[in-house]
């Protein structure tokens, strides 16, 4: 189960990986290679890189508790003007609405809790599933109006 080019402009990627940062690095590198090949704007690439990185780190560490036996499912669709990334783990999930605002007062000095905020800021759309162990993120290409 791996990527299959459907037409030159489209790229679909579907892969299950273990909770291993080296494997998530491979996933990210493939994603970034595809964006660069399609000449996406560097700021968009940075944004997608950051959001996907944060989501994968969350899945490995917070979701699967860094347990290499637990898997992460990554589905990515890329067309001419939009990328959609779906990342889910085998953890118990969490409620994103209960996360403290890391920019608020004393929270500013607490080291953790910024990943989800950055994902929301850098992507056009970020939605968690009901259980909170899966996230769907979309980014509309900069030249297309965002």
């Amino acid at each position: 189960m791996n990527e299959a080019a459907q037409e030159p402009c489209h790229w679909h990627y579907d892969r299950v990986i273990g909770s291993d940062p080296a494997l998530s690095r491979q996933v990210l590198d493939e994603m970034l290679t595809q964006l660069e090949a399609r000449h996406w704007h560097q700021r968009d690439i940075f944004a997608i890189h950051l959001a996907a990185e944060e989501a994968l780190v969350n899945a490995i560490h917070h979701g699967n508790g860094s347990d290499a036996r637990k898997n992460i499912h990554v589905v990515c669709s890329l067309d001419g003007h939009r990328i959609r990334i779906e990342i889910s783990d085998e953890g118990p999930g969490f409620n994103p609405s209960t996360l403290p605002d890391p920019t608020n007062g004393e929270h500013l000095q607490i080291p953790g809790g910024r990943g989800v905020m950055l994902m929301r800021a850098f992507m056009s759309r970020v939605e968690f599933n009901a259980l909170g162990n899966g996230v769907v993120m979309e980014k509309v290409r900069k030249n297309d109006g965002r």
Partner: peptide, 14 residues
């Protein structure tokens, strides 16, 4: 490039 985990280290350093 840096992510939120690196920010955490910088906050602790500060």
């Amino acid at each position: 490039f840096l992510g939120s985990a690196a920010l955490g280290k910088l906050i602790t350093l500060e």
